[in-house]
């Protein structure tokens, strides 16, 4: 169980939050092809290394925020767009 730093509630057990996954930009639904849309739905980088991901503070302030996490070491650092 890792510790995830919520910008409001501070460092919390990850069980207090929900991992909403790797950040994937949503294409414009008006112009996106089905292929582009399905890449957004199903394809992620999933690197063994640094990933920008969204977390939801579901047991605390209920804020969605992003962090950068190294999936190989679970080292965590602030994301620029949190």
């Amino acid at each position: 169980m890792i510790v995830v730093p919520c910008p409001n509630c501070g460092p919390r057990n990850s069980s207090d939050l929900r991992n909403a996954g790797e950040v994937a930009p949503r294409p414009d639904p008006e112009t996106a092809s089905l292929t582009e849309w399905r890449s957004y739905l199903y394809l992620r980088e999933n690197p063994a290394g640094w990933v920008t991901e969204t977390w939801y503070c579901r047991s605390g302030c209920r804020r969605y925020f992003t962090i950068e996490r190294n999936t190989a070491t679970n080292e965590i650092r602030e994301s620029e767009n949190s």
């Binding site: 910008p7 409001n8 509630c9 501070g10 460092p11």
Partner: peptide, 9 residues
């Protein structure tokens, strides 16, 4: 550090 990272405390 953890205390300092917790705006609510």
């Amino acid at each position: 550090d953890r205390r300092a990272q917790t705006p609510r405390s």
